[in-house]
Amino acid sequence: MSVAADTKKLVARLVLGTVLMFGFGFAMVPIYNVFCEITGLNGKITRTGESEQPLVVNQDRTVKVRFISVFNEEMPWEFEPMQKVYQVNPGQMQQTAFVATNPTANNMVAQAIPSVSPSEAAQYLQKVNCFCFDRQPLDAGATAEMPMVFFIDPEIPEHLDSITLSYTLFDITDQQQVAEAKNDNNDKRSTL
């Protein structure tokens, strides 16, 4: 009878739809990242690297750049910007640093995650060099200066006169050890 055949076909299509939508849920992860990259949404992604053109410094206006450090709740480090507020001319290269101390008795590794507010400003803040590009190991009890160099794109619109850049520090010692252990194993295998 044709009803049974129709039903089979329809059910197959509906099951396929279900599977595709399950995949779509996961596809939202890269879609979201690309979307954020294009729109600068959530202030997570800033431009990095050297300037493409020689910079023209705009002497007529300054932009206030404020640095904030945030701790993940389980992070015992001390972590502070050296200077909290800068008044910079758009196009002017500025160097600063954060000071980190590891007060524990263990060697640890941290990763800083930046966030820019307002998010619209993210695309005008360019980091030439930043400690957040790399993992930051710190021995027990040690203190280190973690440098960063940035400038503000001269194209920045008039209404953006204040930018806040916050860094959240995460303890990634455990993940780091797991990764190293894996690398060690691979090394051993390759030497065998």
């Binding site: 509906l14 279900t18 599977v19 939508m21 399950f22 779509f24 849920g25 996961f26």
Partner: peptide, 10 residues
Amino acid sequence: IAVMPVLAGV
């Protein structure tokens, strides 16, 4: 059918 799989995904 469209959204329960997304819930399962999350």
